[in-house]
């Protein structure tokens, strides 16, 4: 079920992977063998406690998308040993969605000390200048 807020920022991953095992590495290693280029790793919040991960590769002059459905709390295998360029994508997904990858720390875009947690989840409602103005919060003193 969707969580309204995650526990306070922890840098260690969840204790045990929940949900069915999702084998990402086998399909990705097939891409590596044909010298494909990693284009992007996209995460989508499906809204029901599941997330979709889309691994986009460019192989033999066409775009190939590998899709996986991940349950919230599952510790995803990292592919950064095969594709070092995947590291930034995985760190970004940790920051913006609060998912976890084995052996990868977040903190790429959002500081660990920040109060903003997993802002791209459907359930989170981060504060913006517009919402602050609507609430009538005054300008900070300087």
């Amino acid at each position: 079920m969707t969580q309204t807020n995650l526990p306070a920022k922890e840098t260690t991953p969840q204790p045990a992977p929940k949900g069915p095992q999702v084998d990402i590495r086998t399909k990705v290693s097939r891409m590596d063998k044909v010298y494909a280029q990693l284009i992007a790793i996209t995460a989508v919040d499906l809204g029901d406690g599941n997330f979709e991960l889309i691994y986009s590769f460019f192989s033999k002059s066409e775009l190939v998308n590998l899709r996986f459905t991940i349950q919230d709390g599952y510790e995803i295998d990292s592919i950064a040993d095969m594709f070092p360029g995947a590291r930034n994508f995985e760190r970004e997904i940790i920051d913006l969605f609060g998912l976890s990858f084995k052996g990868v720390q977040g903190g790429l875009l959002i500081m660990p000390s920040s109060q903003i947690v997993a802002p791209l989840r459907k359930s989170s409602t981060p504060e913006t200048p517009r919402t602050r103005a609507q609430k009538g919060v005054a300008n900070a003193d300087h």
Partner: peptide
């Protein structure tokens, strides 16, 4: 204005 990681203008700081 709808971005969560900004303060919104230099005069806030």
């Amino acid at each position: 204005d709808d971005c969560y990681n900004v303060n919104g203008g230099i005069d806030r700081v």
